[in-house]
Write a protein that binds this DNA or RNA. Sequence first.
DNA 1: TGATATGCTTGCACTTTGCAATTAACTATG
DNA 2: CATAGTTAATTGCAAAGTGCAAGCATATCA
Lengths: 169, 169
Amino acid sequence: MKQTAAPAFDDGLKLSAWLPYRLFLVAAQVARPLERFYGETFGLSQAGWRILAVIAERDAANASEIGRACALDPFAVSRGIGQLTELGFAVRRSGKSDRRFAAVSITRSGRAAFNRIAALGSAIEARLLARLSESERTILDSALTRLEGESARIDADGWRALRDDAGAP
Amino acid sequence: MKQTAAPAFDDGLKLSAWLPYRLFLVAAQVARPLERFYGETFGLSQAGWRILAVIAERDAANASEIGRACALDPFAVSRGIGQLTELGFAVRRSGKSDRRFAAVSITRSGRAAFNRIAALGSAIEARLLARLSESERTILDSALTRLEGESARIDADGWRALRDDAGAP
DNA sequence: TGATATGCTTGCACTTTGCAATTAACTATG
DNA sequence: CATAGTTAATTGCAAAGTGCAAGCATATCA
């Protein structure tokens, strides 16, 4: 059968108006300059930065805690920690009671790097928040909390559950 | 110098409360099941899906229009179109007036695939929106419009501009 | 008719990712 | 106190994705 340009009707999904795409777009556009900065300056990957941010706020985390805190699978966490230790930004010591759990901590120079990256991160957030009113910020905050919960459920349920929602396409 | 676990103060950035990360998290969690679906079902990549969505709503787009519409660079667009044509979801014809511009159109089966993916996409969006009140949706919509604009500017300005904002870290 | 610019594509090196298999450490059981 | 089973983390490798230089076709200008 010859392939032809097809005139036809659509599901009404318009990419630029589809909520998940809009969220993605803001996140991606804003992440790019930051990523460039820590990539060029420290040779840090995205996963590395996320892990660095996690261990900057809790001391002696193990890999699965880190993974949970920044939505990375164990492989990515392991590699990210490897990168951070090579850069001298983190140290692994094996856990006290159970030595399967590596206790990962940030180093002095890791914290210095974190602070420099976080300063840019905060500047980005500030520029975004400057476009919102006080009440919009409050509403966005509480809405995002619910969206985080629902999106986690959607992810966990998988697409088969969605197909049933949608009336089995 | 020996690397040691470092007790110290921080920039206040907490990953889980940082707006860009929160937006990213929702977008990523929600994208995963959809990606799995179109990957397993059609062998489509993320870029492929975005392009498919774009050519589903405008007929005979050229590569740079597509790129602008879904935030992909020309390389990614070219490869994505390649994938779509291999799958029989799109056709390239060379443009009428200027033959450097290839006119890309969706095919009948491309539209069928789009409709099935879009049904899931709409189901996802519906589940997210169900967690918001009517007024929250309105506010989120208008807030996102401004955030999209600001994030595009942040991206365009690059990180050096941010450093100046932040007080030169 | 060059010379230059533009839109797009291709090839190639590099990085990231997904997954199976492995190691190491702990736990429960006969 | 073996030993079989579980859990946390790591490693190796193939596949997929990305970034960039160079290339090709077309168009425009001098």
